[in-house]
């Protein structure tokens, strides 16, 4: 049981909201998709790889066979799944103080949602509605979202550079190389395994992989 895969944390929440509020929230999400500024704060925080919200009506729960009983629910449900860097405990403050308006939008109309400020009721609300992940896979445990984005920039620049300097004189090469370094000066930090996110997670890791524990 772990919400942690390297530098990424899997947040899962499932929370109820009345049908009419679900409709409004869906509409707001729909509008947000076409407003490029909606996610400025979240993009600037740059802690998230990928995240999603899915608002389900009772009839949206998959029904595959007559042997399976049909769900009969009073509420609609909002599913939220996120992959972000650092643990929830560590970064909840950052989310709550940077984008309180955004968070209030995401959970608008949910039953007993307390608003993102003050912080503790919000933290408690999320933890209360959280589901723990049984298997979490991350293709790059040693990379944060920032690292993946930086790496893509570096890769493109490097491929271009390699082509550009073919057959160049040493002096011309050096000049181009200095330019390359300048254009990559925000991309030269390297990656290693994540710092210990939680002592509980570190203890599990130590039990499962004594060889990898430092």
């Amino acid at each position: 049981m772990s919400n942690i895969a390297g530098k990424s944390y899997a947040m899962n929440t499932i929370s109820p909201l009345p049908w009419h509020k679900a409709l409004v929230l869906k509409l707001l999400f729909f509008i947000a998709r076409f407003r490029t500024t909606s996610f400025n704060g979240l993009l600037t925080l740059s802690l998230i790889h990928y995240a999603r919200w899915a608002i389900l009506r009772p009839g949206d729960f998959p029904h595959l066979d007559p042997s399976q009983p049909k769900e009969d629910l009073k509420y609609h449900y909002e599913f939220f799944f996120s992959n972000f860097n650092g643990s929830w405990d560590q970064y909840v403050d950052s989310f709550s103080s940077a984008i309180p308006g955004g968070l209030d939008l995401f959970w608008r109309g949910n039953v007993k949602y307390p608003k993102s400020v003050p912080f503790r009721p919000f933290h408690n609300y999320i933890t209360f509605n959280q589901y723990w992940t049984s298997h979490y896979y991350n293709a790059y445990p040693m990379a944060a979202s920032n690292d993946v984005k930086s790496a893509e920039h570096l890769r493109k620049e490097l491929v271009d550079f390699t082509r550009k300097v073919e057959g160049a004189s040493p002096e011309a090469f050096k000049e181009q190389y200095d330019q390359l370094l300048l254009s990559l000066q925000y991309d030269l930090s390297t990656m290693a395994p994540t710092p210990v996110v939680s002592l509980a997670a570190a203890a599990i890791d130590g039990r499962e992989r004594p060889d990898a524990a430092c």
Partner: peptide
């Protein structure tokens, strides 16, 4: 199930 909103930060 259909995602209502998908956010790509990477």
């Amino acid at each position: 199930v259909e995602t209502t909103f998908y956010f790509m930060g990477s």
